[in-house]
Simulated assay, not measured.
Amino acid sequence: MSDVRIHNLAISLDGFATGDGQALDSPFGHAGERLHEWFVSTRFFRAADGLPGGTFGADNAFAERHEPGIGAEIMGAGKFGPPGWHDDPDWKGWWGPTPPFHTPVFVLTHRPRPSIDMEGGTTYHFLDATPNDALEQAREAADGADVRIGGGPTVVRSFLAAGLVDHMHVAQVPIVLGRGVRLWDGLESLEETYDIEAVSTPSGITHLTFTAKNR
């Protein structure tokens, strides 16, 4: 059976994966771009945007694991758009006409709408479903490849709580946000079901990897 993976999920030292006050002009609220500066500076990210340069080393090595072997993605409504996007029939996500996913993407929302075919192989499907039911549909669409849980933190928490995640990579960024949406709430004792490793890099990022035991 295909694996369920999470990659490059950035959190602050106090555990927030997004800041407070998400809006159209501030996708991560008051956190701005601080959670993701390490990622956008990597060679992997810059090459994907057709830009030269970028850092190599461990940060880039972790960033590169984002794509290989992924056949479908699941994300929450808050990752797909800002508050109120459900009321805009023309909203098609933050990423323009050619999103970076190139696979079926399942958006979890209490207000489903018809699927949207985008350029580059991405198709958005909108589901009002439990994690188990959403994963069943995503696995079928992935056709044997792995399924990535793309975020945000509320969706990641729900899949972790349901015991559905095989591998997770969290990048802990040396900032304190104080408010927003936390990743770890309600997830006590993950160390009992996951082997956890930590790698720190010169950029100040601590990369935490969680690998499910007995899988």
Rank of each mutant, 00 (worst) to 15 (best):
W85R: 08
W85F: 02
H86V: 14
D87E: 14
D87H: 09
D87K: 07
D87Q: 08
D88V: 05
P89F: 04
D90F: 04
W91C: 09
K92T: 13
K92E: 12
K92L: 13
G93M: 05
W94C: 03
W94Q: 02
W94T: 06
W94K: 06
G96F: 04
G96H: 03
P97V: 05
P97L: 10
T98S: 14
P99G: 06
P100K: 04
P100Y: 10
F101D: 13
H102Q: 12
T103E: 03
P104W: 03
P104T: 04
V105E: 00
V105W: 01
F106G: 00
F106D: 00
V107G: 06
V107Q: 04
V107A: 09
L108T: 05
T109Y: 08
T109C: 01
H110M: 13
H110T: 15
H110W: 02
H110G: 08
H110A: 15
R111M: 14
R111F: 03
R111N: 12
P112K: 13
P112D: 09
P112L: 12
R113D: 11
P114Y: 04
P114H: 12
S115G: 10
I116C: 12
D117V: 14
D117N: 15
M118A: 11
M118C: 14
E119L: 14
E119Q: 13
E119A: 14
G120A: 02
G121P: 11
G121K: 09
G121E: 13
T122D: 03
T123K: 09
T123E: 01
T123S: 10
Y124P: 08
H125A: 12
H125S: 12
F126Y: 06
F126I: 03
L127H: 06
L127P: 02
L127G: 07
D128A: 13
D128T: 09
D128G: 06
A129W: 05
A129Q: 09
P131S: 05
A134R: 00
A134P: 07
L135R: 00
E136A: 15
Q137M: 10
Q137Y: 02
Q137T: 06
A138K: 03
R139F: 00
E140A: 14
A142I: 01
D143I: 01
G144N: 07
G144H: 04
A145D: 08
D146F: 00
V147P: 05
V147T: 08
R148T: 10
I149T: 01
G150T: 07
G150Y: 01
G151P: 02
G152E: 07
P153F: 05
P153W: 01
T154P: 02
T154A: 15
T154Y: 01
V156F: 01
V156G: 02
V156C: 01
R157I: 05
S158F: 00
F159T: 00
L160F: 12
L160M: 14
L160D: 03
A161F: 02
A161D: 11
A162W: 00
A162S: 13
A162C: 04
G163L: 11
G163M: 01
L164D: 02
D166Y: 01
H167A: 10
H167G: 11
H167N: 12
H169F: 10
H169L: 10
H169G: 08
V170R: 13
V170L: 15
V170H: 13
V170Y: 06
V170E: 10
A171Y: 07
A171W: 12
Q172T: 13
Q172M: 14
V173K: 14
V173P: 11
P174S: 08
I175E: 12
V176S: 15
V176W: 10
